[in-house]
């Protein structure tokens, strides 16, 4: 299947800047297409298999490109310009599933006690209280707010359990950002997010980042914390059947805790997204 218009019109992160230092036609795969990245004296360029030069931009610590000549603008994250924040780019991790599944898993709090046991959740506190899900019509993005969850070790900087407050944002079919209570500062949010590079309909590379106020941990400490968490998710993601995301509500049965996942699936459907989606008649 060729990518639908909504999928094709997006910008995609394809790696961190240091990944392309001195690159000479380094192969990269995006939306089932072979691309190459080259570094000419610090200027990065991306070409498709026919040698056509693609649009690029450098933002949020990553190189972004698009197959479209008239892409939707890349969403804003003003927090990247705030002083004193630390940015850790975690590196691309390959996962054998649709990148859409990765977004949905990231939005999900109910799995914390079982997949991230004793880090992001404990089995004694599995309950997910109601939270708000809304659409920002102007920016065409999803927000889940007033999410609260009991966490024994919400971040590398946390000491001891706490009720952590979360906000989730989905500004792009393959990006999602978590805003969470900062354990050491009031009135600010720490950010953790995924920039997903869809490789095939059922295969992706997940580039994640952390943008936090943290005076205690080394960058490597933050990196290990995040990579450990993501590898816990990866085993789940690689064992969900089917590997593409089903949008038909008859196929996978949600509950109230899945309100953000329901909104996400509806939003994808409303935008007529088809690439990476499992069709109901494939279920049998």
């Amino acid at each position: 299947m060729t990518p639908d218009t909504f999928t094709r019109s997006q910008w995609y992160a394809i790696g961190r800047l240091p990944d392309f230092e001195g690159a000479e036609a380094k192969p990269v795969r995006l939306l089932s297409q072979d691309l190459t990245v080259s570094d000419a004296a610090g200027v990065l360029s991306v070409n498709d298999a026919d040698g056509r030069s693609l649009l690029t931009q450098i933002r949020y610590g990553h190189l972004w490109t698009t197959l479209s000549d008239t892409p939707r603008p890349l969403y804003d994250m003003p927090e990247f310009d705030e002083p004193d924040r630390r940015l850790v780019t975690v590196g691309g991790v390959g996962v054998r599933c649709s990148g859409l599944r990765c977004v949905e898993n990231f939005l999900d709090m109910a799995h914390f006690p079982f997949v991230h046991t004793d880090i992001l959740g404990v089995e004694e506190h599995p309950s997910v209280e109601s939270y708000d899900v809304s659409m920002d019509a102007e920016k065409d993005e999803i927000w889940a707010t007033k999410c609260k969850f009991f966490q024994p070790m919400a971040s590398a900087a946390a000491s001891g359990g706490q009720m952590t407050e979360y906000k989730y944002r989905v500004p792009h079919p393959y990006s999602t950002i978590l805003y969470k209570t900062c354990p050491i500062r009031e009135d600010v949010w720490d950010l953790v997010g995924l920039f997903i590079q869809p490789v095939e309909e059922d295969e992706c590379i997940v580039h994640s980042f952390i943008l936090v106020f943290d005076e205690e941990n080394t960058d490597t400490g933050l990196l290990h914390f995040q990579q450990n968490i993501f590898l816990q998710d990866r085993m789940i993601l690689e064992n969900q059947v089917p590997r593409k995301l089903p949008l038909d509500p008859r196929w996978e049965l949600p509950t109230r805790a899945d309100a953000s996942s329901i909104a996400y699936r509806r939003w994808l459907k409303a935008n007529e997204l088809q690439w990476g989606v499992a069709l109901f008649n494939e279920a049998a």
Partner: peptide, 10 residues
Amino acid sequence: QAVDFFPGRE
């Protein structure tokens, strides 16, 4: 001591 094996190749 945490070593940045990936992506930093420490």
